[in-house]
Amino acid sequence: MKSNRFVSYFLIATTCCLLLGCTRAHNLPGETGTVEGRVLYGSGTIPEGSSIVMLHKRTGIPAVGITDSTGKFTMTMRDGPDVLVGDYVVNIRPPGEIDDDVLKITPETVPPEWNMVPRKYWNPMTSNETYSVSSGSNVYEFTLSE
């Protein structure tokens, strides 16, 4: 009788794991790594609360990290610490909200914090910043330029 109960519990636990995905640490389509880093600009950092956005070139899945007061960040993808291995285009979204009625984003139409980050980094099409994530731990440190 004990054997049947054990088998039943084992089958229930296995089924739950398969349904809930506990056999996989993430819900990403491929090999992953983790990314921590720091971004600098001039002799200091960019505004605290800036979003570092990395867009995976093959899948289009974004990874995001939020800077602290020293410019450090940890990337997350789909609310987890794992980030897909591969090549990324990187841009930065400084803190602060843009008015809904703004038709063109310019230094005059953005919150003051945005002007503490070079404009080219606001858009992934103009930032020219790229990064390659490898499996395991990755450290991404970069300095912004005009």
Rank of each mutant, 00 (worst) to 15 (best):
S145K: 05
E108D: 14
E97Q: 14
V85G: 04
W122L: 13
C22F: 09
M1E: 05
S135W: 02
I105G: 07
Y41V: 13
M1I: 01
L20W: 04
C22K: 02
E36N: 15
P81E: 07
G37S: 11
I46E: 01
G60N: 05
D101S: 14
E97N: 14
R38P: 04
D100C: 00
E129I: 03
P94Y: 04
N27S: 04
D99M: 12
A63R: 01
V102S: 09
L19E: 04
L103R: 14
E108K: 14
Y9D: 08
I105Q: 13
T126K: 03
P47M: 07
G21D: 05
I105C: 07
E48Q: 13
S43H: 13
T126A: 04
N115H: 11
L11C: 05
P112F: 09
H26R: 01
D79S: 14
I105L: 14
C22R: 02
S145E: 10
E48M: 12
P81F: 09
Y88T: 08
T59E: 00
F6V: 09
T14D: 02
N123K: 05
G65P: 03
N91V: 08
R93F: 03
M77N: 02
G71N: 07
P62A: 10
V7Y: 03
I52T: 03
P118F: 01
T45S: 15
G80M: 10
T59K: 04
F73Y: 15
D82M: 05
E97V: 14
R58K: 11
L20D: 01
G21K: 00
D79M: 14
T109S: 14
D101L: 13
N115Y: 12
M77G: 03
R119T: 13
D68R: 07
E113K: 15
K120N: 06
P94G: 11
G37C: 11
R5T: 06
L11I: 02
G136K: 04
S134V: 06
T14F: 01
P47N: 09
T32P: 06
V139C: 06
G33W: 03
V139L: 09
S145V: 11
P124Q: 12
M125V: 12
K104C: 12
P81R: 11
M116L: 15
S127P: 05
R119G: 04
K72G: 13
V53P: 02
V133N: 05
E141A: 08
N91T: 15
D99N: 13
D82S: 07
P118S: 04
L28D: 00
A13K: 01
T23E: 01
S135C: 03
I66T: 15
T45R: 07
S135Y: 06
N115E: 12
P94F: 11
G42M: 06
N27R: 04
I105P: 07
P94N: 11
V90I: 11
G49S: 12
L20P: 00
R93S: 13
P112Y: 12
R78S: 11
M54H: 01
V39Q: 00
A63F: 01
S50C: 15
L40F: 12
S3N: 03
P81S: 12
Y88I: 08
T14W: 01
D68V: 09
G42W: 08
